[in-house]
Every structure is written in C-alpha cells, then in structure tokens.
Design a protein around this nucleic acid. Structure first.
Lengths: 224, 224
DNA sequence: CTGCGTTTGTGCGAACCTTCACAAGCGCCT
DNA sequence: AGGCGCTTGTGAAGGTTCGCACAAACGCAG
C-alpha cells in the first residue's frame, strides 16, 4: 500500500517515545543555534539533549531526516523539520483554566511563548480574579469559555484548577471543541476517545525521587 | 556486590515503570479511603487510577502484595505498603530553590504536604525576596544553602530557577549532600552518577500535545 | 464439610523500546 | 581523480513493558 504523503516523513508512524523526545531535541537545537553553530553531529546533539546518539539518530530517521553523512545535521533544517512534525509551524493558541498559583506560574512561563505557543485566554471563577489582567491578558469567567474557545479557534487547553473542579472544566472544554488537554490537577479525567489528555502531577515526581532516595539508603552508601 | 535477595519484597527489583505508577495508586487509594471504602479490588483500583487491572496486579505483585483472593486489597494495608516502598513513611524534607512564579506555586501546592512531603527550606538570590516569608517559611539566600541542607538533613531538592542558574544551583546542592533533584528548569543538568535527577519541562508536554493535534488534523476527522 | 463464585498472582506471547555495530554515503585532502 | 576519515541511517539483538488468560486461593452459603 503506497500511503506516502507529501514528504518522506509519515507522522502517523512516529513512536510515542520518539515524540516525547522531539521537544528536547528542538530545545537543544535552539541552544546550539544561539551559540552560533550551523551544523551539529548526532553525537553533539545527543550530548546537548542528554541522550544516546544512536537513539537520537533512530528518532530522527523516523521523521525522514535530512542529515548529511560525514557532516551532520543542518541546525536550521532540522529545527524546521521537527517544528513541522510537532505542528509548531502554525499558530497554536492555548487556553489556561485556573489562574491560581500554578496557573499564574504557567501564564508567566517564558518557555511557552518562546516555543511557538501563546496563552490566548485565561479563565477562572473566583470573583476577585475575573476581570483583572495577568501579563496583559484578561482573566475571563468560565462562562465565557465556549465562545472564546470557538472564536479564537483554540484546540489545546491547560487545566490548573483544584482537582474537584477539573472534571467539570474538562467537560466544558470538550464541549467547546478542545481536543487536547494538559492536566495539572491530580485526578483522572474522563473524556471522549478523540480527546488527548496528558497529566502532570508535581507530587508524583517527588515521590519517585523519594523511592530512589529510600532505595539508596537501604543499599547503604553508594560509592562513586 | 552482594546481590542476595532477602524477603519476598525487594525494593531493588521493582521496575521503573511500576515505580512511576505507585504514586498514582497511592493517590487513588487515598481517594477511595476518603469515600469510606476499606477494601478494593484490582479492577476498582485500576479504574480509579486509570490503568489496566492486570498491569496493576502485576505492579503490586512486585512489592510482595498483600491482597486476598476472592476479596481484594485492604486499602489501609496497601496504602501502608506503597508508602513504605516509596520511602514516605519517614519524614522527607525538601528544599526549594528559586522562589519565582513557579517556585511559589510549588511551595503552595497542597499536594506535597498531603503526601508526606514538606518543603523545609526556600532559597533565592533576589534581594527583594530574601528575608521575606512564604507560607510562614523564610526565604533564605542561596549562600545559606549548605548549612541549612546539612542541619535539616535534606536529601531532596527542587530547582525552579531560570535555566542559566540551574547548573550552579545543582552544583551547590550536590556539594551540600543532596542526592535527588527535581529540575523544572529547561536544561540538562550535569551531576555525579549517584545523584538522581528528574526533569519536568512544562513546555514539552504542550509540544507533545501539539504533535497529536497536528496528527489529528492531518488524518482528517476522527469519528466518535 | 463441600461446592461455588469471586479475585488474586503469574506464565506467556506480543509489542515496544534501546543499544550495538557496521555498511553506505559524503566531503576534503592530496 | 582517488583515497581516507568521518558521520549517518539501519539491521539485528537484547531488554523491558504490556495485556491476556487461567490456575490457585479465598470466603461464604447451605
């Protein structure tokens, strides 16, 4: 079955593990570019991204890479390629629901705007927050969510609310047409199958570290 | 290297994939306990945690589980077991470096205290922050880090600084005796082999979502 | 005490991921 | 032009993870 799309890269067959590393590569490429480099070898990029070079090459091969043997990768070309695959070439507006501590941190997080994202709308329900501005963006009431999501053509949303509110917010978002959700609330969201949810639980990471810490002290001192 | 195993439950042989899910199970158990349940089946817990029930049973078997066939798991016992394996039975003091937006969000994040962690010390270098308090905890200057880490016996630290400062902070932490680091700065940290680092990059998660979003629109409408 | 319904714990095969190792390809130097 | 050193891209091996399916184990009813 010749199911070739335009270029050699078929986004449908990129393994999840690879996709999860592409943003790291992209970031490393930006860093290298800022340092003045124009090309980089797989080894160099692998070190910058903190991974094995063979893994990096295999990852890049999945997106029909444009490396040159004996030379390496053109940083500009590779940056464009990865950005394209990740869908970052087009404007991706993001809605942020829940402007508490975490939400404010996320809204002010430079990493988003720097990498092709823009927080396009903020929502909350607290009376003392709605109507105010954060970084020049108005905080709207949750009731306005459907129309804003629609008019701004937002398909990605971040939930940074307390866990009890998260499911209700998720339902609203899904109804409004959002198809990708990044959930910071520590709870399991129930959404239709066509909606992607990624969950980030800050406490979970600490607990995983605690496990390793516990394991270390059990095993006694680990000499270097 | 003495690689002898003693009892049935050997923390050294718990797969990483399992460890990363144990916190989720623990959280689900707390939720169920609050709802008044005293026992739960693997199926019930699996649904609450959003995983496959067979996977859950296999995970629990790695820590020498105490389930009862025909009945299920005693929630209190299982909670204790998982807490023990994760090393949460003992007090784990955590240091937080970088009290910017994200740092403040983390310090105020209820999820930590609720689950056996306590932020024990805050550090920053900004003159207007050092000396003030956050949630009743004083913000100290980074220079005080070594002595505080030592006196409080802190072995886990969270880095929530700008990326340029992260490596320097990590060096300080390692010198002070910290052996586990949770890094929110978007950069690769260079640390000795006996130090565990986990990285959380908020932008990466969005980019992964962007990929799936991009893929969806390429494939056209996904039914249902 | 015996039988029955339920649920755990796990053997096994499949799928996925990682890593090594090397042939193929490219540019540069002579 | 030809050879050489370097780097990519990938086949294959090894390891890990997943999910099914089922035997073993348990409580309870009668």
């Amino acid at each position: 079955m010749p199911i070739d799309t335009s270029a050699g890269a078929d986004p449908r067959e990129i393994p999840d593990a690879t996709v999860s590393r592409l943003p790291e590569y992209l970031h490393a490429l930006h860093t290298l570019a800022e340092a003045g480099q124009t090309t980089v070898s797989s080894e160099g990029l692998a070190v910058a991204a903190g991974v094995n070079s063979a893994k990096l090459r295999k990852d890049l091969s999945h997106l029909g890479s444009y490396g040159v043997r004996g030379v390496g990768y053109d940083i500009a070309v590779l940056t464009t390629q990865i950005s394209e695959v990740l869908g970052l070439r087009q404007h991706r507006a993001v809605a942020l629901v829940g402007v508490g501590h975490l939400g404010q941190a996320l809204a002010g997080y430079g990493g988003f705007a720097n990498r092709g994202f823009g927080i396009a709308a903020l929502f909350d329900i607290a009376e003392d927050r709605v109507g105010t501005e954060l970084d020049g963006l108005p905080i709207r009431h949750l009731d306005e969510l459907p129309e804003v999501i629609a008019s701004e053509r937002i398909s990605i949303a971040v939930i940074a609310t307390p866990p009890l509110a998260a499911q209700r917010v998720a339902d609203s978002l899904v109804n409004a047409g959002v198809t990708s959700i990044l959930n910071f609330a520590p709870c399991v969201l129930d959404v239709p199958g066509n909606v992607d949810v990624r969950k980030v639980d800050l406490a979970v990471e600490l607990q995983i570290l605690s496990f390793h810490e516990h394991r270390k002290s059990r095993n006694g001192k680990v000499g270097t």
